[in-house]
Amino acid sequence: MSGPLLKVEKLVKHYPLGDGIFNKDPKVVRAVEDVSFSVEAGETLCIVGESGCGKSTVARLLMRLVDPTGGRVLLEGTDIASLKKGELRDWRRRMQMVFQDPYSSLNPRLTAGQIITEPAGNFERLGRKKRETLAAELLKKVGLAPEIMHRLPSELSGGQRQRLGIARALSLKPSIIIADEAVSALDVSVQAQILNLLMDLQEETGIAFVFISHDLGVVEHIGHRVAVMYLGRIVELANCEALFAKPIHPYTEALIAAAPVPDPTYARLEVPVEGEVPSPVNPPSGCTFHPRCPLAVERCRIEVPPLVPAADGRLVACHVRATQ
């Protein structure tokens, strides 16, 4: 295979708002606007941004849980929109998803063993014996004892449930996992266990991750590259170290400055950007960050800044900063 494992080209998703029947110009939620990126085998690409910026919509588009308004998703060079129903099923083996909420994403009536072997059961008939062997194997992979397979999700802790979600995603040996806020609902002490697990699995199997999170500390720890989203668009896409060492886009800069640091000897000089995040129903003209941006110039109100390579090769969408 040549080229990236996953390639996303100009993805757009608009959700209609209310019914447009009596309305000549129905409003839409511009959840995702012109998003492009790629993921290499064995890589972790993180997507960060504040709530409502479109992260989960990107995940749903990748998994084709919703249809895009525009753009393409290519997995190993194949456009997933071109796949027929049967082919789509087969393709789903290669891309799996882990959700935020380990409580609601598992069927409460199935045992742990049934939950994690369910995807495999859809592809081949599994006898009881075979199912149990597979379950034990998967549980071991995510650091759980085989006895757990007979328990119901309600009898497990949050961390154990999230491990189950990961075990289920791993069961079909995918080449990439989309993890949407996979550790956000967990306590920090348990979060560390899950992050270590994901990094170990990547080392062992070379699996790729699209890791979606609003937590910059977690992203900095686990990411190889990071895409920063604001109001449906990627505003900066860079190597993890470079991004945190020197953010270029003013929004990235504000985001990093705003994250509280667990060290009382550090203090911030200035509260980052003022104002609220605008609505994706009625986004500001030009650069959508301009009402909050301390560097905004006239041009920012008029033209949408393109995502272009900056000096060190990272991508930045900013009229003022991209070319400096």
């Binding site: 800069e253 504000a254 990093i256 400055a257 640091v261 009382p264 000897t265 550090y266 203090a267 911030r268 000089l269 200035e270 980052p272 301390p294």
Partner: peptide
Amino acid sequence: MLMRVSSEERIIENFRE
């Protein structure tokens, strides 16, 4: 503008009291 300073340098405004 948006930056962090170490404790030695923070003269201007203190976030925490």
